[in-house]
Amino acid sequence: MNEGPLGWAKFYRKGVGYFAFAMHRLSGLVIVFYLYLHLFVLSHLLSGAATYNSLVTSITYGPYDSFLVLDVLLALVIFYHGANGTRLALNEMGIGLKNHKVMFYFFESIAVVILGVFLYYAYMFIGAA
């Protein structure tokens, strides 16, 4: 009777609205997880500037720079969630209800563009330094 959250992961023969919904939830969970990770990293500031700097440097320039891939994924998830969230907020206020599927694609396209810009600057940031 009660399927539980695992039910969300069944995409077989479901519509785009369902995809948007399930991904919204998953991305939300990832973002919450990141929030704690972020706080964990920031908490190193309590132990002084040196500790914090060495941690950030180890992630940005090595030896743990493979984390940067996750950063890219994180950006993807955040932009997805933000774009879809904006659409949902508009829809819930009754704006563009008839075209909610088109709006999904539209907002996600914007998200992809912003992601591209982000990646460019991120690359420049790392590459330049």
Binding site: G15, F21, G94, L97, K98
Partner: peptide, 28 residues
């Protein structure tokens, strides 16, 4: 959360997900 599956599945062309958003905008 506006997955819209109800509307996709309805055999009679009722659009519950639309109705729910209308309810929300009325509440706003």
């Amino acid at each position: 959360h506006f997955a819209g599956e109800c509307t996709e599945a309805c055999p009679k062309g009722v659009d519950p997900s639309f109705a729910i958003q209308k309810l929300r905008s009325s509440m706003v």
